Structures are given as structure tokens and as C-alpha cells.
Amino acid sequence: MTPHNDFWPGSHFSLLQRDARGWLVPTEAYLRTLLARPELALVQESCAAEIALHEGLVAAPLAPVQPEQLAAVQDDDARENYTVFLRFRDGLLAAGTLEAYYLRLMRSGTVDVPAVFIDAVVQALLRNVLDRGNDALEARAAEMLFRPQRITLQEGQMLAGDRDALDLLHETAGLGEVGRLLRQGGVLQPTAQVQVLTPDNAATYWAESERHHFLLDLTHELTQDLSHGLTLKLTRARSGLKALARVLERWVLHLLGVQVQIEPVHQVNDSAWRWHVGLDVESTAILNDLYQDRPVEAERMQRLVSLFTLTFANPAEMRADVAGKPVYLGLATNAEGLVRIKPQNLLLNLPLATVS
């Protein structure tokens, strides 16, 4: 057993079971962890009906809940939170696995559960995908699929840092509530308690993965001037972009059963460009505009973090009209420098011959 088997303990992966396909089956223990979330935890103001509902679900997470039990909860927000939880729980149980639930939800076109539950599912799925891996860069890159990232340029490096971890560090200087008070009083200045993940310190990632304090280097190696609207930089061999590409390959294989190869590229200069997928809202809009020959302002173009080519190992698995053609992927920040990857985009928008 390798030391990193317990990374991302907050995913509660150890409480899930695998079916014969290797997909994750929800358990009572896993559902109990969701009931412990702040949105569902009991508070001093909880009424008797809410206490009874909560304690009943903790004792029997799979038990049916009658409408009158929900209606009896006095607090509107608490009642809505339990309604959402039960919708999520029942969806998981009906689908049978987290993977099947995620695919069904995203393909439905109606996402009726909050992002916090979806991100929890994505984290658990990625924990499953990476379970037998030993590459800390890939594990850190996978965090980008369920945790928003701040992109900053520091001394020529393009670095991705966990938004929530960086914001908390800025507010508290790494000293919790005491640090927050001292910072507000001007006693403390923000301290640099984050570090760039490299092969030299990668071994420490596994024990500290729950802190989300490692920066991922997304820097390209050779600078290229933007031309044809889509020129960036060449990637280095051990870049975070390479690690992200490997994670996306495994994501597609695990959920769709389709083998693809994804590589960061320095430009797209393809007169026969046929298909593209944005990994986020911003890159989707930029690629759509470029594909339609609509002008893209320089400021928006500068938000592109990277481009990728995706090729199918078996072109027969592609739609006949684009078989053998590369699929171009984009990754970009919003105006505030945030990257919010939508991992469902790769599952919903690839030109598949059939939907698995």
C-alpha cells in the first residue's frame, strides 16, 4: 500500500463501494457524511421536526421521508435544504452509481441540485479514477475539475492556485480566526504559505492534499506571438498542462469508455477546423467566436490559458462527418482571473458516433 492512498479524505472515497464495472456505489456511510454538511447540520434554533428528521436520516440514510415530515420543518431554508438533499439522494439511489447519476443529470439538461453536491460527486469520481496513480501533479491538476482556481502571473510563471484556499490565507494569514482579527487590525500582513508543486516536493502533496495550498505551474516553455487568433506557448514536459491533459484522458475513458489522447498545443492553424469544446464558459465563447470568424478583443484573447488537441484512438467512435479530425479544446479565465472548469463539457460535447 502506497502512502498516498488516503489523499482527498474529504471526498469520502473510502466509504464508497465499487461495482463490477469499477463505478462507485453509494452507501449509507457515504450519505451520512452529506448529512453532516453545514447546510444540513442541526443548530440551536432547529425545531423538533427538523431534529427528528435529521436524527432519523442519520440512523437510516436510505429511509423514505414523507411529505408531511418535510412540511413540519419550520425554517424555510432548512426545509429547502432537506428537500434538495433528498432529491440528490434519491437520484443517486435510482442511478445505482455516482457515475451513472452524474451522466444522467448532465445529459438531462436540467441540473436540479446545487453545485456543492455536483462538485462532491466529481471529486469522488476523480478520486476513483486516480486511485492507482502515483503522480502528484495529476492529482493536483484534477482539483481544477471541482475547485475554482485563481490564475496569476509571477515572474514569468502562470500559476493556478485554489481560490478558496488563497482567499482564506489572505484573510487570516494562515492563523484562523485569530489571524483574521489581527489582519483586520493591521497587525499582520499576508504571508506566503503556498508553494509551487514540483517533482522535488511532490511527495508532500499526498499528506497535505486536503489543504489545497499547492500552486500548479501552467506555464508554457517557449513564448509565441499570437497569430491567426490562436497562438500561445509550447508546453514543458512536466507542466501542469500535461498533467491536466492526462487527467482529462482518464476522465473520458472512465465515464464514456472512449480512449482519447489530449495534448497541449501552441496554436490552432487548421483551415479544416471542424470541432471544438471549451472546458469552461469563457473558452467556449472565445472558440465559438473564432470558429464563426467573429472578432475577439485582445483582452479576451489574453484570457486563454491553453489550447489542446484531442484525438480518438479509434476514429470509428467519432461521428462519420468528423472522423479522423482533431477536436480542439480551450481553457480560459473569466474577467476576474478565475478558471472554473466544467468537466461535463467533455462528456456532453465530444463528437461521438453513439452515446454510451
Rank of each mutant, 00 (worst) to 15 (best):
T2H: 14
H12C: 01
S14T: 09
L15M: 12
Q17M: 11
D19S: 11
R21F: 08
R21N: 09
G22C: 05
W23K: 05
T27W: 02
A29R: 15
R32Q: 15
A36M: 13
E39K: 05
L42H: 11
A48D: 14
L53F: 05
V58R: 15
A59P: 02
A59C: 11
V65L: 08
Q74L: 13
D75H: 07
E80Q: 13
N81D: 07
Y82D: 00
V84I: 12
L93I: 15
A95W: 10
G109S: 03
G109R: 08
D112A: 07
V116D: 12
I118T: 12
V121C: 03
V122W: 03
N134S: 11
D135V: 05
A141Y: 02
L145Y: 01
R147K: 12
P148N: 03
Q149Y: 03
L153Y: 11
L153I: 12
E155L: 05
G161M: 03
D164T: 06
L166M: 04
L168H: 11
L181Q: 15
L182A: 14
Q189L: 15
Q189R: 11
T191F: 15
A192H: 09
A192Q: 12
V194C: 13
Q195F: 08
V196S: 10
A203R: 10
Y205V: 07
Y205C: 04
A207G: 14
S209N: 04
R211F: 04
T223D: 09
D225A: 12
G229F: 04
L234A: 13
R236W: 14
R238G: 06
G240P: 01
L241M: 07
E249W: 01
W251Y: 12
G257S: 07
V258A: 06
E263N: 07
V265L: 13
S271E: 14
A272C: 06
A272S: 11
V277T: 09
D280P: 00
E282L: 04
E282Q: 10
T284N: 09
T284L: 12
T284M: 10
N288Y: 12
D289P: 03
Q292K: 13
A313M: 08
P315D: 03
R319G: 08
G324T: 09
V327A: 04
V327P: 02
V327L: 08
G330Q: 03
L331D: 00
L331M: 14
N334K: 05
L348E: 10
